[in-house]
Computed example of a mutant assay.
Amino acid sequence: MERGRKWAKELGVPFEPDLQSVLANPSIDAIVVNTPTNLHKEIILAAANNKKHIFTEKVLAFSVKDCEEIFNTVEAQGVKLMVSLPRLTKDYYLYAKKVVDKGWLGKLTMISCRLAHNGAVPSKGETQDWLPAQFFDKEQCGTEGTLLIEDERIRLKSSQLGDEEWIHPEGIDSSLPMPLEQWAAFIKDGTVPTITKEDVIHLTLINEAAALSDQESRRIELTEIVKDQENTRVKDPSILG
């Protein structure tokens, strides 16, 4: 609470320790949720039930079931929800999606996404990088091409685009508006965001599987969680989306 008072003073805005007072305030149209994920569901449902638009940090919730409950409430209350997934708006992501959709990489056998990656570069004093050997084995790692995005620069090699030399594509689509901008436009004029409900649920699905894998010390197939959710829906019709 003291941290909140201090920050409010720095920003020159009022501090209100009672969340319900904030949500009941008719002059407030929207809220931004930056709490730990374990508090997301409680706060977001309360905000939606008070007709507040919601912008929240990822992940939306710890389970797909909770995500569906949140979306059902948001849709029933007619408010706009946006989850901050800024990478989905970047030009290099949009280009990567285009490459995959057009089949330029053939059948995908692996997708590796990192914000920083030096796995192919040996550390100082070392002669060997830390990536497994199969990462460089053509038979094991790819079918028709490779897409690399480093420092927001794009390189593409595809058997469908010529002699399999690296190309640097030009004229790629510009980045889309950031999630916060899309949320505001959705509220103001109904512009449908490019970040979808499915994007949010899929992220939670991966997160839920990772947590379960850690708990049970085993590989988790995403189909396990999906089947569990489907079985729950049959037993409990109240969570049907």
Rank of each mutant, 00 (worst) to 15 (best):
I54N: 01
F71P: 00
V100S: 04
V100D: 02
K98W: 06
S63Y: 03
V74I: 15
T56Y: 06
T109W: 14
P122H: 07
E69L: 09
K52P: 03
S112F: 07
D91F: 07
I54P: 00
F62W: 15
V99I: 08
A96P: 02
K98H: 08
E68P: 02
A116N: 11
K80I: 03
H53M: 05
K98L: 04
M110A: 12
S63Q: 08
A76I: 05
H53W: 02
V121L: 15
K97N: 11
E75D: 13
E69S: 09
V121A: 10
S112M: 12
V74P: 00
F55N: 05
N118Q: 11
Y92K: 10
V74M: 03
N118S: 13
L60N: 01
A120R: 09
V79R: 00
S84M: 08
A96H: 01
K58Q: 06
H117K: 10
P122K: 03
G103Q: 02
K65M: 08
K90T: 13
S63C: 11
V121N: 14
E75C: 06
L115A: 12
M82L: 13
A76G: 13
F62S: 09
K65T: 15
T89Q: 10
V64R: 02
N72T: 13
K65C: 09
L85Y: 06
L81V: 08
G103K: 01
Y92D: 12
A61Q: 04
P122I: 11
L108S: 11
E57P: 04
G125H: 14
